[in-house]
Design a protein around this nucleic acid. Sequence first.
DNA 1: TTATCACAGACCAAAATGATCTGCGATAAT
DNA 2: ATTATCGCAGATCATTTTGGTCTGTGATAA
Lengths: 157, 157
Amino acid sequence: MLKLTKKVDYALLALNLMAKSGEDGISNVRDIASLYSIPPEILAKVMQKLSKAGLIQSHNAPKGGYSLKVQAEEISVLKVLTAVEGPVGIVSCSDGTDRTCQQHDQCDIRSPLERLQNNILWFLEALSIRELGQEPAVLKGVTDGSSVFGQPLHHKG
Amino acid sequence: MLKLTKKVDYALLALNLMAKSGEDGISNVRDIASLYSIPPEILAKVMQKLSKAGLIQSHNAPKGGYSLKVQAEEISVLKVLTAVEGPVGIVSCSDGTDRTCQQHDQCDIRSPLERLQNNILWFLEALSIRELGQEPAVLKGVTDGSSVFGQPLHHKG
DNA sequence: TTATCACAGACCAAAATGATCTGCGATAAT
DNA sequence: ATTATCGCAGATCATTTTGGTCTGTGATAA
């Protein structure tokens, strides 16, 4: 529950690798899958979804593969999640998939849960593929205090 | 993906109801299940977990049921989630369940994902059952600006 | 022409989740 | 003491989601 799927993990790993390999670096499915021990067929599907979402550019040819279509800073984790798994919603009622919710009429906790969801989405949108590849030490400098990252788990107690 | 389970939904609904019914209000499974159209057996299990976690107090007798064991302000959504579904982790590697992760050695995105996870957990911990029952208008006053709730979804663009 | 790549979809397996069924134990009211 | 009402416990099954496999097609540079 509240867990990212493996497909998303794979997508993030691949995108992070591509981000590190520079602007026009081309990586193919076979190599990435081999490096991270990912089933090639699965990664292939994931990459296709990222391509359709406009996050990466496909080069369909020998020595081809994929390259980032936009800068790593512009690719948020939320975009990746949405591209791979569809719209994100922590409550089933709020993503339009559950139109037969038995609790809908009596439900009196929707608003706060949706607010909570918006915050999570905001975080996912705020974290870019570029930041994903930063070492903790590097990230630390810009994440203490004002930034949303690196907050303590417990706000009290 | 990233979705709360129905059991958690049920737990939050029940706890919210109990929070509204006052300090020593006792509610039984049958009534709550009936009110929200929840399968009684499911809700029963959920309530038992909440009881074992020390969030509610059981009264095993006729006219019995459950009452809050601690104040609604002290019951965070994270506590509920953990009680009902076990430890929360958005990445499988970080909750100790996946000790055979094929990507572990090569994985270079763990740190930022764990940071992201900590932020989500922090939000879940910051939201209490009491706040869950507040109307949007009521909540709005204390959530604009400094508070973590009610942030805009997009921080840029 | 061919080997290497992406593209596409059907298909199956495993796991998580939701729900049901059955029986037991505690206790207040009668 | 008996009984009806409640929680407690677990095994079991169905459904959905997810992860993975298989087969084949189309594009293109060497």
